[in-house]
Design a protein around this nucleic acid. Structure first.
Lengths: 255, 255
DNA sequence: CTAGCAACTTGACCGAAGTCAACTTTAGGC
DNA sequence: GCCTAAAGTTGACTTCGGTCAAGTTGCTAG
């Protein structure tokens, strides 16, 4: 069985997908057409590696569905999972700017449809299109903020708090009280995303249940009291203290 | 005693400092002049806070000398130190792009000369100057790479390895064999920069001595064998495995 | 030169998370 | 529907790093 398929889909489809990316949403039809040159749509199975760390970056990728894992790996196989991305996210686009090697590896972790795009078109478009460059800078500044949060979480939150924060980010803005959520991918994967072992995840989730009254059944989590979960998780998180005040914007704040 | 001084220094001086920043090095004299509008040069003592997390960002800062600490803080006072910057670095410039609040606090940790600059001029210059925008994107992509490394280090390196990596980054490219280096700031501060307690730092450094044969006397560290230190520290670091091969570029690689 | 204080070190202890192994549950392929 | 493999859980144990307390060192202001 093949673990990937280069499919012929219409140019229109590719362009529709491109337009769905926040970075490109304000681009004119012409710009989208340029960016779409040389695009290849592929359906990948779990396990497919899109590219690896230190490989020269010649293409970048748009995730249309499924999930991909961004990670780095030491010689002995220890992995550090940097992030896990889903639909409408780009990956590998940073290396384009620097004409450099990819700074990490990317692997499909839930069957994914992906559009592979040549770096060159994006690079030239960024050079001649100030609006796009502006959008790119904003996107990067936004992601910088999130990475700073990530570093903070790794350094000062304990395992149950990191899980709590993760759950809160799965809720949608403005929800209150009882909320039911569905874990987007394997618990083992969530564990590595949060920088802990599966065993630790399992035990920490148990502790979180006891501390915040959430209920867990398989991949379904019932949060009995959002505020209580937020109080517990955000105690060790600087994200604007209103994070504690769910009526404002907890889930958004914990970024 | 005042802990800061707004000094009148010549416009020329300010412009010279601006030109020393990699981001601005390729800018024309006119652009530099624009950016320098409303600049204020200040000498700050240790402890001075430049700005705090969640404050609306109206200015950004250029460090001319000394050291400043970028950090986030929870309600109970626990700090996560994100980075520690010195001369020719900008801080607070990301928030400019987003017209947003600062995503962290910044405090002077070694008496520092700082130039405070209005966000507005940078923002308009980035909008109308594609070369500058291009340079900004490259800078951000570069820093993104470093932050990914930071996340990796926090998740998979232990305390002695993180210290080893820090020491390696203090050596200059291409050095070999015996190297003498000077710690740039307090050990306590290095400890927090590396996400550990001062006691842990002290013990981990002792362990690093035993494992790699380095010698420590106050703030002076004598690395007997760079390769040996690199082998030990970079075992838990994905940064291009040649990192292990110092003849190439270890210190640069561990970024 | 000296007093005082901050930085640093060391020891004893504790708790969080990692490791290893055994076991249960779940989900996908035939 | 059954079988297998992977995912998840649990227990026992270890290790690393944090905490608290008691030093020591070293700098600096007077």
């Amino acid at each position: 069985m093949k673990d990937s398929d280069a499919q012929i889909i219409s140019k229109d489809m590719v362009e529709t997908h491109l337009r769905s990316v926040p970075l490109f949403s304000a681009c004119s039809a012409d710009v989208i057409k340029n960016l779409a040159q040389g695009a290849v749509f592929q359906s990948h199975k779990k396990g497919k590696v899109l590219f690896i760390h230190e490989e020269q970056a010649s293409r970048y990728y748009l995730i249309c569905s499924g999930w991909v894992k961004i990670f780095r790996e030491t010689l002995d196989g220890t992995q550090a999972v940097i992030d896990i991305l889903s639909a409408r996210h780009l990956v590998g686009d940073r290396a384009v700017l620097l004409d450099d090697k990819y700074p990490y590896s990317v692997e499909v972790v839930e069957n994914a449809d992906v559009i592979s795009l040549p770096s060159h078109e994006l690079k030239t478009e960024l050079e001649r299109n100030p609006q796009l460059a502006q959008a790119m800078m904003k996107l990067m500044a936004q992601e910088h903020k999130q990475q700073v949060s990530e570093i903070e979480h790794l350094s000062i939150q304990n395992a149950p708090q990191r899980i709590g924060c993760f759950l809160l980010r799965l809720t949608t803005q403005g929800q209150k009280g009882r909320v039911k959520i569905h874990l987007p991918y394997d618990k083992t994967l969530i564990a590595s995303r949060l920088g802990m072992q599966p065993e630790t995840f399992s035990r920490a989730l148990k502790k979180l249940k006891k501390e915040t009254g959430i209920e867990v059944k398989g991949a379904t989590v019932l949060i009995e009291d959002l505020q209580r979960l937020s109080d517990f998780s955000c105690a060790m998180c600087s994200s604007n203290y209103p994070c504690k005040d769910l009526t404002k914007k907890c889930s958004g704040a914990c970024q």
